[in-house]
């Protein structure tokens, strides 16, 4: 039957793909997609525990806030990406290294 551990597994898969994208890909948009996935994994966990363990709606609310914050974050991140593209004519992350020592 559908149980908590299955959801944990699914959120882990999401988290893993998100991580792989963030670490492995060189284009900014890819990293942002990866980030979205990681956030979703966390939200899924919250809701799973809220459904199976606490039977209270706090988990739902927490996931709701995660979604809201993720949206705001995505907006700002994408604006940065575009401005980065306008400056450097590329979205390749390795160009983004002015902070090098």
């Amino acid at each position: 039957m559908v149980s908590l551990s299955s959801f944990l597994f699914l959120s882990f898969v999401l988290f893993l793909t998100g991580l792989m994208l963030v670490l492995g890909r060189k284009s900014i948009i890819f990293v942002l997609i990866g980030l979205e996935l990681i956030l979703n994994a966390a939200a899924l966990n919250f809701v799973a525990y809220s459904r199976f363990v606490t039977e209270k709606l706090d988990g739902h609310l927490f996931a709701l806030f995660i979604i809201v914050i993720a949206a705001a974050e995505a907006a700002v991140a994408l604006a940065l990406a575009i401005r980065f593209y306008q400056l450097k004519e590329t979205t390749h992350l390795d160009e983004l290294s002015e902070l090098k020592h």
Binding site: L19, L23, S97, K100, H101
Partner: peptide, 17 residues
């Protein structure tokens, strides 16, 4: 410590993770 700052964001991310 200076050598640690490679300037690559993803390297920092790996360390963080």
């Amino acid at each position: 410590l200076r050598t640690m700052q490679t300037g690559r964001i993803q390297f920092y991310f790996v360390v963080l993770f």
